[in-house]
């Protein structure tokens, strides 16, 4: 028996969508595939080998850029999440707040403007106030554009959860800090976690701002990868990229699961 066609569907829609997904994953697949190529020439397959992973892990310049990226991302994540959490609490919980719309726009400002403009802006600012420490400059700039990414899931969770339990705690004379620590925080934890990890990944991935601020002691992983690409494609670059893809995909999966939970009311 022929399956009844959904009247809402269009011919070719399915094929088009499958081709699209293939296109979406093709580049990632290609990088992973060629990272196991033993040939020095990237696009000429010779045989299976994991030697490029070994050489990548023994590359000191790479490891030091990974260290810089991790430190910057960790501090950016901590500051951005704290700032976003405080702002989200006031924005969602203060009744009759006059600054609500403006405050929300201000928190989301980095999303509205092209990053290259913001990168130029902080570069000039730092050069004027004489801030030269590589990592400190990076953290300060990264916190700014990571904050809206931490803010969104936290606010979604704060708005999505029921207020009953908070009210019950207050009715039982729990002081505000106790209500926050024992009731609100545990309930919004998936949102906070998702926000923190998003901020971490956004900081880890950043190229434009980090490149603009690049100076001694502040070479992050994307900047190092960029310098390698400029020297030409190498299988080692594929191995580094594959490792980075794996880390990104794992973190993304965790965040997306948490986000799905944070969206669910009282989940």
């Amino acid at each position: 028996m022929r399956k009844q066609r959904d009247i809402r569907s269009y011919p070719g829609l399915r094929t088009l969508s499958l081709v699209f997904f293939a296109w979406l994953y093709l580049p990632i697949g290609v990088v992973i595939f060629y990272s196991f190529n033993s040939n020095r020439l990237v696009s000429v397959w010779e045989g299976f080998s994991t030697k490029w992973y070994v050489s990548a892990l023994q590359n000191d310049a790479l490891m030091s850029s990974v260290r810089v990226s991790l430190i910057v991302a960790l501090f950016s994540m901590i500051f951005a999440t704290t700032i976003a959490l405080l702002a989200a609490l006031v924005i969602t919980r203060a009744p009759g707040l006059k600054m609500r719309r403006v405050s929300e726009t201000v928190v989301n400002l980095p999303l509205l403007l092209p990053e290259i403009v913001l990168a130029v802006a902080v570069l000039i600012l730092f050069s004027q106030v004489g801030l030269n420490s590589g990592m400190f400059r990076l953290v300060l700039a990264h916190v700014a554009f990571c904050t809206p990414f931490a803010f969104m899931p936290i606010r979604a969770r704060l708005q999505g959860m029921s207020l009953d339990v908070e009210e019950a705690a207050r009715d039982l004379y729990a002081p505000p800090l106790t209500v926050f620590r024992r009731v609100t925080l545990p309930m919004i934890m998936p949102g906070v976690f998702a926000g923190a990890m998003t901020a971490f990944v956004i900081s880890m991935d950043d190229f434009i701002t980090s490149n603009m601020l690049n100076s001694g002691g502040g070479t992050t992983l994307p900047i190092y990868i960029f310098s390698l690409i400029r020297q030409g494609t190498t299988p080692e670059l594929n191995a580094i990229s594959t490792l980075l893809i794996l880390v990104s995909l794992i973190l993304a999966t965790i965040v997306l699961i948490l986000n799905a939970r944070a969206m669910r009311r009282d989940g």
Partner: peptide, 28 residues
């Protein structure tokens, strides 16, 4: 929706680099 979002999490530089391999000389 998860599958659509996923590649977006991969570092921008890696995503651009992957097209460099595909579109380059003797590439896919």
């Amino acid at each position: 929706v998860y599958l659509v979002t996923l590649p977006f999490w991969v570092s921008m530089i890696v995503r651009v680099y992957s097209w460099l391999i595909i579109l380059g000389n003797d590439g896919l």
